[in-house]
Every structure is written in structure tokens, then in C-alpha cells.
Design a protein around this nucleic acid. Sequence first.
DNA 1: ACACGATGTGAAAACGTTTTCCTTGCGGCC
DNA 2: GGCCGCAAGGAAAACGTTTTCACATCGTGT
Lengths: 338, 338
Amino acid sequence: MVSIKEVAKLAGVSIATVSRTINNKDRVNEETRARVRDAIAKTGYSPNTLAQNFRRGRTNFIMVVLPTIGDPFFSGVVKGIQAIAQQKGYSVLFSETQMSSISSDEFANLLVSRQADGMILLATMPPFGMEIISQKSERLLPIVVGCEAVHPQMRHLPSVHIDNVAAAREATAYLIAHGHERIGFIAGEKASLLTKDREAGYRAAMKQAKLTVQEGWVVEGRLTIEGAVKATRGLLNHSTPPTAIFCANDEMAIGALHEIRAAGLKVPDDISVIGFDDIRYSQAVDPPLTTIRQPAEEIGEKTMYRICRAIEDGVMLTAEPELVPHELVVRRSVARRA
Amino acid sequence: MVSIKEVAKLAGVSIATVSRTINNKDRVNEETRARVRDAIAKTGYSPNTLAQNFRRGRTNFIMVVLPTIGDPFFSGVVKGIQAIAQQKGYSVLFSETQMSSISSDEFANLLVSRQADGMILLATMPPFGMEIISQKSERLLPIVVGCEAVHPQMRHLPSVHIDNVAAAREATAYLIAHGHERIGFIAGEKASLLTKDREAGYRAAMKQAKLTVQEGWVVEGRLTIEGAVKATRGLLNHSTPPTAIFCANDEMAIGALHEIRAAGLKVPDDISVIGFDDIRYSQAVDPPLTTIRQPAEEIGEKTMYRICRAIEDGVMLTAEPELVPHELVVRRSVARRA
DNA sequence: ACACGATGTGAAAACGTTTTCCTTGCGGCC
DNA sequence: GGCCGCAAGGAAAACGTTTTCACATCGTGT
């Protein structure tokens, strides 16, 4: 591989001058600059990025950690992230935890090893290397949490997300306002803060309306279609089955829709369903799904902005959570109770 | 940051010995080894990865480039990749091209800069830095193409994929076997080889059955739900509308289903629909989608295996495409023509 | 005429590893 | 007892940049 040395020799200058020419930072005579550029072209030189990273102590990478690559909800968030990243000159890389099956070690490695200049955690907090983050929070790279509240043990991390409990309360209240009193909840992962918040919102709304949550009305759906199918089956077989189901995300709502249909029932005539996230499939299923929309792109942009500021200022600014607005989008999967 | 030097001092050895201890490669007396380990623990030392990368000239990263993060089809492929990667000690990073809006520059940068030891291109070939790859194919890092055939201009790249044209032919033939003669095709991106192959398969099947493809029966859907909705509307308004629609992927098939329903028609009674990929939503929509399944996980595993071999042997082995089997999965979106 | 700041450049240090090349000590073999 | 070989580990080179420091030249204000 051709290195800076050979460029310098060919151009008849020192390597320092070549470096300066490349990085535009320092003043170099326009004439020498031209000579260097010629030499670069002739030799086909391109700087060794590994050496640059090493020397500079930074990589210009932002690492985004998310539960799984194939999740349509993150499309929007990622789009927002990319937009700002491009504008600021960062490259974005993704790392998937495979639903938290990632070893805490690998995560720690990423964190400490500085192969990225900053890190965005999207709905992937649970136990997830908390020890590491909370322990030596000093020499670590900037972290921002997106899409969910941060775990109480590491309140020092900034975050950007909607008010999940308020949104879930709203969704539940919407069902209640339609006359439903027996409302089931298909929860997500036990470990996930995000889905715990949504469950809390559901329970709060029920309580506020003086409705009881019967044993067996809250059931785990593991955030997957298959999980939701099983969960729905359970709900339908309940001794006093719900007349409406609130799913902690749209993926599961789609599973619920499917299973209800398979049971020979109609949504929303026999049973109402409401989801969460407003993924792109939700408008296309039958019936189109009433759900809570998160401003995904905005979340992405804001997390990225905060990372950038943290990197540039070299210091973690305020760790306060930044709330963004959610929105109930009404489609056709909820009806007044018969 | 604590460096190897301080560990060496504390342990009373040279930095060489510390390095040897860490990397296990060379012989170190068990006793000194213990001392060094103690010192490492005491100082909380962890090696500077940037320096290691620089020195070793490798990063242990595999970069996976895909069109978009939120695409459920890639879940499976990625799962396969991750499995092998973990087993071989690589970390996997993802980079999304945002549907080929990525600058060729950025791609070239990744390619040349060796920030990864190998690269997997998933359905993202089109123009996409072909110049670079074909030009100086020497000093580049190993590349394997997954999910689609390689562009004729760079036949030297290995690839792993199904026979897209055969599969599409099969899907079309399945419709024909059900009595359909007016069959529409919703194509993907113009630029994408993958969808061009599928279109070729469709046309081949029509030709073989001596059916003509009328003007306006092949329409672009841009691989998105919205694109497919528009495309379907066009098809339905055609002077001689198709009785069956073949969509180049399931995402679009879901869009088609939706638009057909919106037009007051029934699938499959009035119109049959067949998709491609078998994403997880396809079984949950109404009606469940008949489609072509790709062995996604297997594709992932095989691409990763080839990358590993290429890296380890330091040489690109055979560039022959490796074909994996596809499978028609029959559900309920296709019926005999009325 | 002289000091001084601005400008352009080179020599060399520095970054933290890994690796090469030596040196040392020691046990076994002739 | 001298020689050889081997295990263990140290000193220093090497990797390719960026950056610091110093120096030379030149124009300018006194």
C-alpha cells in the first residue's frame, strides 16, 4: 500500500506538508498544495484510515444499537438519524442485539473500545451492560437513549422519547370512551422498560375509570406476531373475554387481528384492537389499525443532535429526558361496544 | 487512559510480555503470566482497540450493506450471518444505503479504508460503486453478494442467492395453472438486478404459456406499500384488467391486497395475488399470502462462510454463484379463475 | 537598519500496540 | 567441562498518521 511517505517524496516535500494538504487545517502555499495533489493523484494514495483513527483517537462513526434489524418501526428513527449524521459528517453503523441475546461482553467491548465516537441505544436498554455504563461512566463515549425512558439505575444518560405511559393511558381511554370495560393487554418483553411503561399506562387508565383488570387479561406477547397469536388465543378463551385488546406494539396487533379472524370473529364488530407505533403495515392490514403514532423521524433527529453536541462539546450535557409528542391515529379497528 | 506501559511497570515486566500474555500467542511463563493478569486487573487496563486495529491491519468487523434497516425480509438473512459471525469471532455491522441514495463515495470509502475485514452486499448492487470494485479489485477487501445475482460487470464477485428468474417463472406458472391468462406484474426498482430477474421470470413463463403481456400490465411499485397501492390502482383501471397479480416482493403484495380491498374487490375470489420473499407479515394478512419463500437464514450463513474463507485464505476463492433452493408456499391469496 | 509578526515548511515526537531480534540462564549431551 | 538448544523475556523497531516545535524567509512598521 502506498503511504504518505511516497507522496511526500514524489512531491518533494515533507510528510507533514502532505498531511497538512490533506486535512486543509493548516496553511499551505497554494503552489506546494498543487504539487502534493498531483503526487497524490499519481500515486493513487489514499490515507490509511486505521492509522488516522488511531492517531486522532476517533473514528467518525456513530453506532446505533437496536433490538433487531428487520423491525419496521426503526425505519423512521434511523432515517432521522442518518439525515443529521450526513449533515454533520458522521457515518452510521448498526449493531443488533437480537432481542437482547447479545452478550453483555460484546456490548462492553463496543463501548469501551472507542470504535465509534458515540452510541445511540434504541429500545434496547434492559439489563444490557448496565454495570459497565454505571460503573466507569467517566472515560466512556457519549450515549443517548432513544425511544424509551432510561433505566433508573442510569439516570445520567440523556434520552429522547414519547411519554409512553401517557400514550398508553390515552389509547386505553379511547377504548373506554367507546364503551369497553373488559379490556385486555398484550404486553411486550418483561425486561423492556418501554413495554413496562405502556403496561403502566394501561393499568392507570383502567384504574382511573374504576375498571378492574381481571386475572389473565394481561398477557405476554414477546413483541412478535407469533407471540401475539398465542396471547390472543388465551384472551379469547378467557372465561370473561375482553371486548377490546390493546397491544403494546403494532406487530403484535397484526398478530391479534389474524388470530381473531382465525377464530371466526370480526374486528371491530366483535372485538376492538388498538396498537402502538404506527408501522407502515398498520394502514394496510384489514381493518386498518387504530394506533398510537410516534414521531419516529423526529426521535432519530433529536437523538443524533444530542450525540453530536456531546461529542463536540466533549461533555454530556443535561441528562434530562426529552419528550416528543405522540398522536392517536384513528382508523377502523376500534368500534363502540355492541 | 491506562496503557500497556503502566501494566508492564506494575507487573515488573516489559510491554512485550504484557502483549504476549494478552494474546496468548507466544510462550510466557505461567508465573509471570499471573503477575501480568493481576496488574491488568488492578489497573483496569483494556487494550486500545484503535491501536490494535492499526497495528494488526484488521478490525474483526464484517460490514453488511443493505438497502434499508427496517426491512423484515433481511431479518432472516442477518440472523444467519450473525450466527456464523459469532462462531468465527467477528462482529457484524450494518450500513444502510437508504435505497441506493448512498453516495458512491461513502461506499468507496468504506471499501478501501479497511475499517472492516470483509463486506457483504445484500440486494444493493445496482450502480453502487461498481467502478471502484471493478477497477482496483486487487487491494480491496473481500466482498460477497447475497440475495441477488451479481452485475455482469463484476462477475468476479462470489454470490449466494436463489434462482430468481426460475422462482418467478414458477410463481407465474402457478397462476397460469389456476386458469389465469391475464396476469399483471408489479415490478420493483428499475435499477435492481433482483427485481429485473423476477420480471424476466414472469415474462418467460407468460411466453412459454403463449400468453401475451399487454401494455400496462407491468408496472413499477418501487418495492414499497405505497408504490404498490398506486400500481395496483393502475392495474385495476386497465381496459383489460388482470385477473391475477404477481408482486416482486411481499411488501408490495400487501399493498396490492389493501388496494384491491379498497376497490371493493375480494382476494382471491375476484383477483388472485402472489408475492415473493415470505416475510413474517405475509402469513398474518387477510388472506394469508401465497408466495415464494427464500431460505433467508441459509443465505446469510453461506455468505458469511464465504467471507470467512476469503479472509482466512487471503484470497477470493471461486466466484461462482452459489444457488440455494426456493419454495412456493401456498396459502390463500390465489384461486382458480372464476 | 532593525526588530517583529506572519507565513510556509521540515524534522522529529508521539500515539499504543505487535513483532522481530537479541540476550540470558539453564539443563542435557557429548 | 564445553557446547548446543531451548525457554523466557527485554529492547527496540515498526506501523502511518497528526502535531508540535523550530527554523527560515519575507514584508512591514519604526
